[in-house]
């Protein structure tokens, strides 16, 4: 049965209208920019920007640093996505257990990374990763391990960033999973118990399928979020050392906001957009099967 146009309009209209003005039009504008050579000189006098077709994209294709940023970003995604998902789910399930004490205290703890001001927490993390005075290597030292130089070693810097990224996202995704878990009717578990299912089977055959909408949401958001990796390397390393932590958005930011090459930066945004949307559609398609 089709819903009447009136109700569709009432329910979706306001959101769409606002999104149109404050998101879709600006995005469209920035896509148009990608076809121009909008740079330093055009910022005050817009007439100086010229339409140059796909030249920015051609340049981008031959841009060594862009490819580096591309690989770095995927490296981050490929590790941070599964790690965060598994750990967040684990913690959510444990938090949701009936016999878990001090639930509220745990939840507050998990909430902390999410509320803490980015600049301040970045300073704390650069201290944690400090090879000589930092907490990380101090803790490793207690186990007799000599920690690497983290942020100043091209081999380890990205991993350090990933640790920070996972840390920032973990509590938040745990709370999302928790909300999803609470939506699963208890009756289903009771029914499974009657059928003689053990805890693992209940998790596999009740929790996971029922949690699917949440999982789809969480992983999709992670794909979108991690491909836009920016703040963490911006704060901790500015993309160094040896561009080992240069991410796509950091490169975009550099080109657009530091070098004022907004045309070129927009072409990076377009490529990133296509990348994200294809992965998102893929993810949503997968969830349907």
């Amino acid at each position: 049965m089709k819903t009447s146009k009136f109700w569709v309009f009432v329910f979706v209209g306001p959101s769409l209208f606002l999104l149109l003005i404050f998101s879709i039009v600006p995005i469209f504008a920035s896509f148009l920019l990608s076809l121009t050579n909008f740079n330093v000189y055009a910022l005050v006098d817009w007439s100086r920007a010229r339409f140059i077709g796909l030249e920015n994209f051609r340049d981008l294709f031959h841009d060594e640093l862009f490819w580096k940023a591309f690989l770095n970003t995927f490296y981050c995604l490929s590790i941070a996505l599964p790690v965060t998902t598994v750990l967040a789910l684990l913690n959510a399930v444990l938090l949701n257990r009936k016999d878990t004490r001090m639930k509220n205290l745990f939840k507050v703890c998990f909430f902390l990374p999410f509320v803490t001001n980015t600049v301040a927490i970045a300073i704390v993390w650069s201290w944690i990763f400090n090879p000589r005075y930092g907490l990380m290597n101090w803790v490793l030292g207690l186990f007799g391990i000599r920690g690497p130089q983290w942020l100043s070693d091209p081999k380890w810097a990205m991993l350090a960033i990933i640790v920070f990224v996972v840390w920032r996202g973990l509590g938040y995704n745990t709370l999302l999973f928790l909300a999803g878990l609470q939506n699963i009717p208890q009756e289903l578990y009771e029914a499974a118990e009657l059928d003689g299912a053990n805890a693992w089977q209940k998790f596999l055959y009740v929790t996971l399928p029922m949690l699917r909408p949440t999982t789809v949401f969480v992983t999709t958001m992670m794909i979108i979020g991690y491909l836009q990796l920016f703040e963490e390397p911006y704060m901790l390393t500015q993309g160094g050392p040896m561009n080992a932590t240069l991410s796509i958005v950091l490169y975009l930011y550099r080109q657009g906001f530091k070098f004022f090459k907004l045309g070129y930066a927009s072409s990076i945004a377009v490529v990133l957009f296509l990348l994200i949307i294809s992965l998102t559609v893929l993810r949503l398609k997968l969830s349907r099967e």
């Binding site: 400090n130 090879p131 000589r132 005075y133 100043s152 070693d153």
Partner: peptide
């Protein structure tokens, strides 16, 4: 040093 220590310390 290539390992960022702390300048003051």
């Amino acid at each position: 040093p290539t390992a960022g220590g702390n300048l003051f310390q």
